[in-house]
Structures are given as C-alpha cells and as structure tokens.
Simulated scan of single mutants.
Amino acid sequence: MKQLLRTNDPTQIVFAKALLSGEDIDCFEMDVHTSILEGSIGILPRRLMVADRDLFIARAVLKDNGFELEDV
C-alpha cells in the first residue's frame, strides 16, 4: 500500500474516500484511532492508503478535484 493523502482535516478524508469509491478504488484510512486519542486538537494527521496498482489513477482523481498532494 502507498500513502495517497495525509491531512489533519477529517472532511478532506471523507471527500477523498467518496471520490475514490465512485471510481471503484479501494482505500484504507490509517491513524484513525491515534488521532482520536489526542482529542479534538487535530495535531496528528490521518493517512489515506491505496494499493500500489491504484496509486496513479487515485492521485489523478484527487488532483482533478482540487486536492494538493505531496510529491512522492
């Protein structure tokens, strides 16, 4: 699995998951429980992971919808 997105904004994660789901791209959200433990401070980012084979198309889908992604 490869990291597609890392953010402190839970709304970005939800939106990204919806976009990927619409394209039949499976994704997995990591660090959910860690960020819950820190409370509502929002300092620990969550990561959205996709399979290696889906990374290119997933990045294209998110970029086409206004996401600014880190270069890998």
Rank of each mutant, 00 (worst) to 15 (best):
K17W: 05
V61E: 00
E38H: 07
I57M: 14
G66C: 10
L55S: 08
E68T: 10
F56K: 15
F67C: 09
G66S: 04
N65H: 15
L55T: 01
A18C: 03
M1A: 08
R46Q: 06
V50A: 06
E70P: 04
G42R: 06
R6D: 14
M49Q: 07
L44I: 13
D24P: 02
L69S: 06
T7L: 07
V14M: 13
L44C: 07
I25L: 08
R46W: 02
P10K: 02
K2M: 13
T11A: 06
K17M: 12
D9Y: 07
I13W: 03
T11Y: 01
G22E: 02
R47H: 07
S21A: 12
L19V: 09
K17L: 05
R59N: 05
D71G: 09
V61S: 09
S40M: 15
I57P: 06
Q12K: 15
G22K: 04
R59D: 03
S21Y: 09
G42M: 07
T11V: 15
K17Q: 14
T34S: 05
R6M: 10
K17I: 04
L4C: 12
M49S: 01
D52G: 01
R46P: 01
V32P: 07
E23K: 15
F28E: 00
R53V: 14
V61N: 00
D54I: 03
L48H: 11
D71R: 14
T7E: 02
L19D: 00
K2C: 11
C27K: 07
V50I: 14
K2T: 11
M1V: 13
L44R: 05
I41Y: 12
E23L: 10
L37H: 04
T34Y: 09
L48G: 06
A60T: 13
C27L: 10
G42C: 13
L19A: 08
E38Q: 15
L44A: 05
M49C: 01
G39A: 08
Q3D: 12
L55F: 01
V32K: 09
M49I: 06
I43C: 04
T7I: 13
M30R: 12
V14S: 08
E70G: 00
V72N: 00
A18D: 09
H33D: 04
V61G: 02
R59E: 08
L5C: 09
E68A: 08
T7P: 03
A51H: 11
D71K: 15
A18Q: 11
F28C: 04
D26M: 13
R6G: 10
D31A: 10
K63I: 12
R6V: 13
E38G: 05
D24S: 11
Q12L: 15
V50F: 12
P45H: 02
E38A: 12
L48I: 12
K2G: 00
L4Q: 10
F56D: 10
H33C: 03
E68F: 14
C27I: 13
L5S: 04
R6I: 13
A51K: 11
L69D: 04
R59W: 07
T7C: 05
E70F: 07
V14P: 03
V14C: 15
T34Q: 02
D64R: 11
G42K: 03
S21L: 11
T34V: 12
N8A: 00
L62G: 03
E68C: 11
R6S: 15
K63L: 15
K17F: 09
E23T: 00
D31F: 09
D52R: 14
L4R: 10
L44D: 01
I43N: 06
L37A: 11
A58P: 00
